[in-house]
Design a protein around this nucleic acid. Structure first.
Lengths: 191, 191
DNA sequence: CTCCAAACCGAACGATCGTTAGGGTGAGTA
DNA sequence: TACTCACCCTAACGATCGTTCGGTTTGGAG
């Protein structure tokens, strides 16, 4: 992929995140590239393609980050690292993550279904961590893994609205993790 | 407000939630009303007004629901009831809540700032509950109320993506609450 | 010097956008 | 019967939308 093309993808993610997919015109894109709008079609086939590509980029980033969580640690530790991984992707690729979470629904046809499948797969990977934690006795035996994963994923998916790069993202993830695991009441196990 | 006008507001919330503000045309709205698009301007001044009105409706619903939380109960109980109140608004007015959370940023001019102020006020009310819980000794003394509120609000704000009316919303809210307060590890206080 | 390929221009396409204006309908009221 | 008022239609407005296309510029390879 040419340098010009990847620059276009970057600008598209930025503008889609800022003004929304339907709120961003080809003219806006062209302006950001310093070019007449017709010229963009040398690099892309359609506006939809830019959205699709951003979605793919986001999906890959989240999966790759999750892949880096080691297998041979306790489940609660995996959950902590998974939270870190997710928030780091959001912080480092804020535009892509924003489009991934908020603008995906404007994907047309089977690309929309592809996204849904992709996200379901990611959510299932997260759910498995909580299930493992319960089955291995690290988490309470009456834990509903679906509810637990939903709570964690809610925090993760909402992060794009408030996370700002530059802050200590890892520490934030750890605080979320501590809250989720030990609760707010204060009967945490001494560490 | 005439019956026709409030029907228009309802349809607008529905379509904005389904297809997004910029993805919904006046023609779409007219079609949903069974009317030519020019006819809509007998009931409204502009498309923006419909978005604004939906936002106001959402803001009021959330605040009113929170007002119903009694003063004379423990803070953790207030938090439980606040979660119930929030999720109930989302479930019962899913379209309005969706627009409120996802489409507000297309409000132009000072109406956008008005929304931000409104939401900040709501978030502060939630934060106060966690602060109260810590200061009264119900929650751990080292609790960061900002982080705790952020976690709870993330779950609440993300709910529009998965909550479906008809299920037992109150029970879901209680499960979230139990998870937040007692954690997942399993050292909950016996009830 | 020639040639190629990438990149861009400039003009235009048909479609659709949000909005306006003027006239028409039918039910209710005096 | 005369009048009002809410409601709707039809037609059109200028603007902007995403996209197409033939021609031009540019820099490096042969």
């Amino acid at each position: 992929m040419s340098a010009r093309r990847s620059e276009l993808t970057r600008q598209a993610a930025r503008l889609f995140a800022e003004k929304g997919y339907h709120g961003t015109s080809i003219g806006d894109l062209a302006g950001a590239m310093g070019v007449q709008k017709g010229s963009l079609y040398a690099h892309m086939a359609s506006k939809q393609d830019l959205l699709y590509e951003t979605m793919r980029e986001g999906a890959q980033a989240f999966h790759v980050a999750l892949d880096a969580v080691p297998d041979d640690v306790p489940a609660t530790e995996k959950i902590r690292l998974a939270l870190r991984a997710h928030l780091r992707v959001v912080a480092e690729q804020l535009d892509v993550a924003t489009v991934f979470v908020r603008e995906w629904r404007y994907l047309e046809g089977e690309r929309g279904e592809e996204f849904v499948a992709e996200r379901r797969r990611y959510e299932e990977r997260i759910r498995a961590l909580f299930r493992e934690g319960r089955e291995l006795g690290e988490l309470r035996t009456d834990l509903d893994e679906a509810i637990a994963a939903l709570l964690a994923l809610s925090a993760a998916n909402w992060a794009y609205t408030w996370l700002r790069p530059g802050r200590d993202t890892d520490e934030l993830a750890d605080r979320f993790h501590a809250l989720l695991v030990d609760g707010m009441r204060g009967y945490a196990t001494p560490s």
